[in-house]
Design a protein around this nucleic acid. Sequence first.
RNA 1: GGGCGAAUGGCUCAGCGGUAGAGCACUUGCUUCACAAGCAAGGGGUCACAGGUUCGAUUCCUGUUUCGCCCACCA
Length: 862
Amino acid sequence: MDLNTVYSPKEVENEIYDFWIKEKIFKAEIKEGVTPYTIVMPPPNVTGSLHLGHAYNSTIQDIMIRFKKMNGFESLWLPGVDHAGIATQIMVENDIMKENLTKEKLGREEFLKRVWDWKEKYGDRIVNQQKRLGIYADWDRHRFTMDSNYQKAVIKAFVKLYNDNLIYKGEYMINWCPVCKTALSDLEVEHIEEKTKLYFIKYPFKNDDGGIIVATTRPETMLGDTAVAVNPNDERYKNLIGKILILPLVGREIPLISDSEVDMEFGTGAVKITPGHDPLDFEIGERNNLQKINILTHDGYINENGGIYKGLSRQEAREKIIKDLNEKGFLVEIKDYFHTIGIHDRCNTPIEPIISKQWFIKMKPLAEEGLKVVREGKVKIIPEKWEKVYENWLTNIKDWCISRQIWWGHRIPVYYCKNCNKMFASENEVTKCPDCGGSVERDPDVLDTWFSSGLWPFATLGWPNETEDLKYFYPTSLLVTAYDILFFWVARMIMFGMYFMKKEPFKHVYIHGLIRDEKGRKMSKTLGNVIDPIEVIDEYGADATRFTFSQLSTLGGQDINLSLVIIKFSRNFMNKIWNSGRFVINFLKDFDKSKKIDLKFKKEDIWILSRLSKVSQLANELIDSYEFGEISNILYEFYWHEFCDWYIELSKLRDDETNKYVLFTVFINSLKLLHPFIPFITEKLYKLTLPDERTILNTDYPKGEDFIFDGKVIEEFEIFMNINKIIRNLKSILNLPLKKKAKVFIDFDEEFLLNWKNKIEFLSFCEITNKKVEDLKNLTEVYKGAKIYLFVEKDYPIEERIDNIKREIENLEKENEILNKRLGNIEFVSKAPVEIIEETKKKKDENEERIKILLIHLKELL
RNA sequence: GGGCGAAUGGCUCAGCGGUAGAGCACUUGCUUCACAAGCAAGGGGUCACAGGUUCGAUUCCUGUUUCGCCCACCA
């Protein structure tokens, strides 16, 4: 067979993926009596493009899906995309700006049409990128959170919550984005530290001289101040409580009140109260019946309540107010100050707390169920540390603001009668009031995107209809996600799953880390350190990319600092697999796989089969416990440094059917073991080896008990390997080329030598003599009782060797001193486990034996 | 303010109650008939610091330092 010596992933990957799609290998079916294994894919944003985080996330899911499929489960991996309300709307708004259009100019209907056009244009991009990774997803079941069925699910969910009194509308302080002009949930606000100023402003008394000095980072909000508050226990102000102050620049009379929430230590201990624009002030205002004045327009400018400052931006107002305060003598001091401000996570605009009428979900009852199901272990979060974080968040949860003043999304199914003012939710679009028949108006707001994503595990399977899919595939088996959306998404899916389905949405949640650049920084466009996974795949291949992720995936779910260099390692491994495949296929070309063979195992056959058995057993255990990094390394080590380095090499000495059978068995089963991690190259080689077979995915994942196991032979083979290493090392000391034959004598068990002599001669390029050659110089080594002599006919530079031996003897003696001390310690001998004591003794004896030999050898050299 | 995580060879990271592992990089020798993206051999680490528990600590506990993250209404 003519196969290139350098593996080129691109052709193979395209060919193999086309084959999988054409043959509908990934199609999941409802199969009576077969246990399903279901994963719903975290839906990327419909307009997004694949980043390394997605690639990592998908790799883990794909490993599990393929592994379970090969273990006899009916694997369903359900893919899809999210409409991503605000994110998408921002993109489209930016796009129409090129035509000098705004969404207001277009109107709601026309704008939404543009968004759908945009979705049509870019919606496939991410799917095509995912396919490059080779993922086993049932594309026929692809879902979009704005599909008409999905819309039905969202409306159904809202109406049920509404009718169960878990959704309410009310006027509360919420996070407002002045650029997106919408309310946001607490989660969508990111907190960043900012260097700013702390301004000290004097508020004079109405009827007395003097006044109170307050400290604030946001002087512009004073336009909305309706009180100043101090702590009731603050001796400095105790007697002044109740006095009336004059609000500078505005002239409003405001009282000095007391509230225990006020921190005496901060600033002057007196705080200005702006109930309209600060959450704490809002509460204090509620407690003290203060007026709440809104001073901002929806796009963040000062409104008519700001008097002469009307029309200024927040920043302009701040500057002008400080200037005016200073001129009029109210500004006492300005200090540098660090504090955190909230910004919108989608557009980075500083958010503004304002009072607004919005829709909320009562979270307490939902959270209780969400907590219960995790506490009871029905949902297991891996690694466990995230359970505490989850618990903590749900325990302190506040009501969730779900209404958004944008257009792209699921419109709230609440109607208002213009005639009798009735407010009601309805699953069907209505035009007339059910009570009075008057005409109705639908609420203009749409729902938070995460409301619809929260329904993902069951809405994608057909809910609210009782579909066969839903019955068979729900609850799903596993959810894989990074920790950054634990609250946004995972917690809400669990709560909604319990509420609507009365059953947990998934049994395991595997939380992994984020992909960062090699310096540990987040990948971002502004930093310019973004690595495009498609470029990585183009250069190194999907298998190498996947193997890298798998190898770096540790159980702790640590973030991964990815440098491109390490993908090379995986690429080299793929190349090794490819070339070993070429060798095996060629070696087996006259081998009839179907023929019964009279097996006559040699030691190395039993060794490699035993190792295959062990590795198969480990693979099953470790994949089931999500230890991908560990098993990746084990498979790498086994394939390259055991199968290729030793078994394949030894095969070159042989020409018998047993060898070919073993070579075939180990090769094919290694491909199966590796398939979930590196699906393309393994499928390709499988089909090249067995042209009549359809796909490796229809085979069973290897189990430990599929192969013979003999631990004694493994030990014996280890001695064999080490003797080879010693001979090679001795040759290397002499600077002898590996292939130059050397004369060697091995003083060891005769039966062992009988078995391995010609193999050592072959692998280490030497000639093993029957007895020690006394008249020649030699280099000597000891391993587990075996003494190995390498004879040297010519003189060679021995000084270095002598130094080395001396140094080694010294080290060994030092070590034995420690070991002797330990063994002489009564506490150690009485308390340490027997194995450890035995090991220590053995180590000591070995060292002594080694010293003895080295001393003799040293004498010979001197 | 609360919580979490990290600190291991030049770099990227595993690991673990019995004196340290991988890949890359480095040094030396190889046109070995699968593979130079390879083969063989090798050098390199007081496992951040200080205490404690233990026969024994890089590993467990406490504290410190540095870095990173999450949550939180201190103006």
